[in-house]
Design a protein around this nucleic acid. Structure first.
Lengths: 189, 189
DNA sequence: TCTGATTACTCATATCGATGAGTATGGAAG
DNA sequence: CTTCCATACTCATCGATATGAGTAATCAGA
């Protein structure tokens, strides 16, 4: 049930079209949730039907028309309601971890490749988050911004995203190195 | 499709009953995947039907009988096949992050409570992972164990779990502190 | 001018995952 | 002596998520 609240949270700052939201959710800018395009569109339809957001048609000459959505008071109330409800604990669920768990029983060559690939991906995402953070805080220091900034929610979630991707990167690099050395070292199998 | 491979990976070291597996998946010992009891049982049924695991009945006097499962050669082949296939990137999906994203628009008191609660939970899990790691490596140093240990897969995934929970803990603590200070400071609202 | 990328979406279906309830036995704790 | 907890599962159902295909327009590049 949290996708709807993620959408509401994403719409708090600015009116967005479904397409823009999809971009935010799909292309990793959403550091606090992830969803498929179809999910986002379906959720927008439901949210509007329930009166939690309102859409207005924007006619465009050069592009297909689009609908911009903004959160209603009912939507804000819904977010408030969501915020006081118990949050489920978050779990890691990752194909790569499953593969590493089985590392002693399977061929590790492709696994090492996948780990280095993932490390590079994580690094790219971390860089992106870092840039986002700089943009958000402007010329203020982080401490300054977090103390007195007027909109710190996205900054805080972005910090988590950055730490997560850095953790991903470091672990992937280290794991790849270890597996590579073992493979080369005593040339088992 | 990865639950089945997670189950296979979990059964690599030892024969386990469905109930034991459920414990491993449900109670956080599974640092590489998470699943509900009913999912695990259903998957075991499917895996046995597909010949990837075999179960043997163990009659018990004092307890209900149980079935212990072990991975077959076909199961190992399936794991190999899984390992070379592309892994989907992993995303964070967390109610708490959604709430923090909306932090500037909602009441933060209960949010701060939830953050400190989560921090404590993460700390407990991190401690548990730390103990698991010590048990696995015995009296060897980590470097030693990772270089020459015979079964390092679970150790490596546990390392990721530990880092993840430490990251969770640190972020929750810091975020809670920041929100608390802002609330107290310029007493907005 | 044909191709492919980008904007802006919709529909249908399948699989995955979560939730609640239910069954049966034995041992420990009050 | 009764209630609760642990073992060891099964069945049913619902919502969430993923996948694949399809529409329709504009613009840039080969």
């Amino acid at each position: 049930m949290a996708l709807r609240h993620a959408v509401l949270a994403a719409l708090l700052d600015e009116e967005l079209s479904g397409y823009q939201l999809v971009k935010a959710f799909d292309l990793g800018v959403a550091n606090f949730w992830h969803a498929q395009p179809q999910q986002v569109y379906a959720e927008l339809t439901r949210l509007e039907k329930d009166g939690l957001i309102t859409g207005r048609e924007v006619v465009q000459d050069t592009r297909p028309n689009k609908r911009l959505f903004q959160v209603t008071d009912a939507g804000l109330a819904e977010l408030d309601h969501f915020a006081v409800a118990a949050a489920k604990p978050s779990f890691i669920r990752d194909d790569l971890l499953v593969k590493v768990q089985a590392a002693d029983h399977i061929d590790t060559r492709t696994l090492v490749e996948q780990l280095t690939e993932r490390a590079a991906f994580a690094r790219a995402k971390a860089d992106l988050f870092d840039k986002l953070l700089r943009t958000m805080r402007g010329d203020r220091t982080e401490e300054e911004f977090l103390r007195h900034g007027e909109r710190i929610g996205p900054y805080l979630t972005c910090l988590r995203g950055l730490a997560f991707e850095q953790g991903n990167h470091d672990w992937c690099e280290r794991t790849a190195t270890i597996l590579r050395e073992r493979e080369g070292g005593h040339a088992q199998q």
